[in-house]
């Protein structure tokens, strides 16, 4: 069996190494990434077509909106899978061993709590800034969502998972994660209802008080907000389930 596995690994590796010979040279002008029609179009026309200075955001949320939508779905499914695998509904079979559970400190540490109280509002505002400023600088839904999720994880680290669960309960987590995907695909669906292709944002100018070009820019913010919702909820859910072994009580 080990020999077979070794053979499979070696064979795949050899195949991959063989395939690298077909790669274009570093920085070659003829490589599809540099000279292709598509990338040239992105680089030259993004500003004219979408009014978004950050090409990465425009490609991610507009030109390849489908890809990003299903990436968000992947994040959502990962969150659901983590809950399905780890969540422990009360019979304690997967919970803490009793000795460890009794070992938890009763009171959260004062210094850590105070610092977190200072840092968390700043962190959350900065996360919203990263989310909303993704058009102009590096950032966007995934990054902003991860930072928002991290702020809730910080609450859980400082005050215990239960305190954080009071703010963002499991019900809210699932609702939030699903809402994110609903916002994303809903934006696409509205385009469909207005008579254009799915996720073809420029048609949104009919319901938004803007011209078609700015409508694409604004629609990117909508879908990024959806991404941020899902990522925030799933990040915190993964932490809460992993840290408490699925009981959502006690914690690290």
């Amino acid at each position: 069996m080990k020999g077979l596995a070794l053979f499979a690994v070696a064979f795949t590796g050899a195949l991959l190494l063989y395939a690298t010979g077909d790669f274009p040279d570093w920085g070659s002008l003829d490589s599809p990434a540099n000279g292709g029609e598509l990338s040239t179009h992105y680089i030259k026309e993004v500003r004219k077509e979408t009014e978004v200075p950050n090409i990465v955001t425009a490609v991610l949320a507009d030109y390849r909106g489908f890809d990003t939508m299903f990436e968000t779905v992947v994040v959502f499914v990962a969150g659901i899978a983590i809950i399905a695998v780890l969540r422990d509904f009360g019979n304690g079979s997967r919970g803490y061993p009793p000795a460890l559970a009794n070992n938890l400190p009763e009171e959260p540490d004062l210094i850590v709590t105070q610092t977190c109280n200072l840092v968390i509002p700043v962190l959350q505002i900065f996360a919203l800034y990263v989310l909303a400023h993704g058009h102009h600088s590096p950032g966007g839904g995934f990054q902003g969502g991860v930072m928002l999720g991290a702020s809730y994880i910080l609450i859980a680290l400082a005050n215990g998972v239960e305190a954080a669960m009071k703010i963002l309960s499991e019900r809210k987590i699932l609702l939030m994660a699903a809402t994110g995907i609903l916002i994303y695909s809903g934006t696409g669906l509205v385009c469909l209802l207005l008579g254009e292709n799915f996720l073809d944002y420029h048609v949104l100018s009919r319901i938004l008080p803007t011209d078609p070009i700015m409508a694409r820019s604004h629609a990117m913010l909508f879908v990024e907000t959806g991404v941020a919702f899902t990522v925030t909820a799933v990040m915190f859910s993964i932490y809460a389930n992993l840290a408490t072994r699925g009981t959502l009580k006690g914690g690290l």
Binding site: D109, I111, T115, L118, V119
Partner: peptide, 20 residues
């Protein structure tokens, strides 16, 4: 400023975890 706030706190938290 952020590092001035967070770095000593994380050191403190690690110390306390070690003591516990």
């Amino acid at each position: 400023v952020l590092i001035m706030l967070t770095s000593p706190t994380s050191t403190h938290a690690l110390m306390e975890a070690g003591y516990d």
